[in-house]
Write a protein that binds this DNA or RNA. Sequence first.
DNA 1: GATACAGGCTTGT
DNA 2: ACAAGCCTGTATC
Length: 157
Amino acid sequence: MKQITYDAVIASPIGKLGLRTQDEYITELAWLPANRKLIAPTSSFTQLICNSLTLYFESTTRLPCFPLQPQGTPFQRKVWLAMQKIPAGQVQSYGQLAARLKTGSRAIGMACRTNPIILLIPCHRVVSVKGIGGYMGKASRTNIKQWLLQHEGVHDY
DNA sequence: GATACAGGCTTGT
DNA sequence: ACAAGCCTGTATC
């Protein structure tokens, strides 16, 4: 089995986060199980990102925009791009997003689910019209979504 | 209200 | 081609 190595793994209130970069781009920021070993960032670029993430978690600072380079289908990239335009502290429903992109709400869900860069592509700001919706394919992870939303000032979920 | 069903769109077998 | 997924709107108890 293939072991994925990250450029950095940091601890956060919602679990461990694995960061992978390529040149000066972020290619992945994934939620990891708690038994992952921490990896300190080595380059100044990854260090900067980790600092921002830590700051984001420990204060009300919102995340700055980093250059992203997510791998995915053209459709997924389109959705991810649209999601990045949702301002912090606000949420948008799958349906609204779907209407804007002229697609279906469930298709939006698929794109969210395969989001390789959590937080920076704010899939947690996309909610169902009635309820919070799911998160990363598992209902048990919606608490992460809730935490993030609450952290950004959304208390309706 | 609370279920049930069907519709619409993309992705992985 | 088929089934399934972070959904939604309408119909029917």
